[in-house]
């Protein structure tokens, strides 16, 4: 029982990170129908940014409270990653809007390759590890054993929940959110009604990247290690999460993220850690084959 609960907590923590990344995939797919292949690498980039900013802040203001430092890191990482994503959309995707269907996908793959190699080039190929930022945990006795609930896990789950709530508010209640939903439904019509479609799409990328930066910062808090190659697999898993939840659906992305996190953790805990990625990829394939519209997605009817 305690083992199970422990894995549950670990899975939810990991799933929060996947969910945050998955939102970026789902929003972009929803609005321009494109798999933003570079999104996983944007996440990786954001983790690097977070690490560097964190080091800067701690070395500049050594005595700063860890909480304040983390908030600063989070905000700066969100802004800078959003800037990157904005630039990427501008350079690699916008010129291809409305063109050949494969072109944006290839361009995104190219961008992904570029980002990986760019980070490798400027930061070196080795793992970058920092000492644990937040130590300590609650130990909760559960019949027969203990489960540890690390402070950082609480931080991750709470931050995710708060930011998702804020984000949900933006998408549901603001003019920007309305414009996004309008563009999703019918981009031409939205443009005719005076919505700045380019700007809306740019902002979608920006928001997705900002959430990826949150994921990147939390990733740093949780693991304390970043590597230039760390974008691909989490990216694919987050994409799996988006598909599992129903691509285009925001709550779906979060639910999918949590599910993928749980599945991965439980798979590693009870079966085989070697095959945990195989499990994630298999779930992706199985979901797409048997329920391509995911848990919360709209079924894709083929109109003749």
């Amino acid at each position: 029982m305690d083992y199970f609960l422990q894995q549950l907590i670990n899975g939810l923590t990991l799933g929060s990170v996947y969910g945050l990344i998955a939102i970026g995939y789902t929003m972009v797919y929803g609005i321009i129908g494109m798999i933003n292949f570079a999104h996983g690498d944007v996440f990786m980039l954001s983790a690097f940014i977070a690490v560097i900013i964190f080091l800067m802040i701690t070395s500049l203001f050594g005595g700063l409270a860890i909480a304040l430092a983390l908030v600063l890191v989070l905000i700066i990482a969100m802004v800078l990653t959003a800037l990157w994503s904005w630039a990427i959309e501008r350079v690699a995707y916008r010129p291809l809007r409305g063109s050949f269907r494969l072109a944006p996908l290839i361009s995104a793959i190219g961008m992904s390759i570029f980002l990986v190699n760019f980070v490798q080039l400027v930061q070196g190929p080795r793992n970058k590890s920092i000492p644990p930022i937040i130590d300590g945990s609650f130990v909760i006795p559960v019949d027969g054993g203990n489960i540890t609930l690390a402070y950082k896990q609480i931080l991750i789950i709470v931050t995710t929940a708060v930011l998702l709530a804020a984000f949900w508010f933006v998408v549901q209640k603001t003019a920007l959110g309305r414009a996004q939903r309008a563009c999703e439904q019918d981009r031409k019509m939205a443009a005719l009604l005076g919505i700045d479609v380019d700007r809306t799409i740019s902002l979608t990328f920006v928001m997705g990247a900002a959430l990826a930066a949150v994921a990147g910062t939390l990733f740093m808090v949780q693991y304390g290690v970043v590597n230039f190659a760390d974008g691909f697999v989490p990216g694919i898993k987050a994409f799996t999460a988006a598909v599992l939840g129903g691509i285009g659906s925001l709550p779906g992305a979060v639910i999918g993220g949590l599910l993928i996190g749980l599945i991965e953790v439980f798979w590693s805990a009870y079966f085989s850690i070697d095959y945990k990625d195989v499990a994630a990829f298999s779930i992706l394939a199985i979901t797409l084959i048997f329920m391509p519209s995911g848990i919360l997605g709209k079924p894709d009817v083929e109109k003749v």
Binding site: G33, M34, I35, R101, L105, I236, F239, T240, V243, D274, Y275, D277, V278, F281, S282, L284, A285, L288, I289, P292
Partner: peptide
């Protein structure tokens, strides 16, 4: 056989997943 009824990007992603599965199995 299972994947070819998917369309577009979904097919792309499933084929990617299968490619990765095969590679991971080769590693493990």
């Amino acid at each position: 056989f299972p994947v070819l009824r998917l369309r577009g990007d979904y097919l792309a992603i499933v084929t990617l997943a299968f490619g990765e599965i095969i590679r991971l199995v080769l590693i493990n």
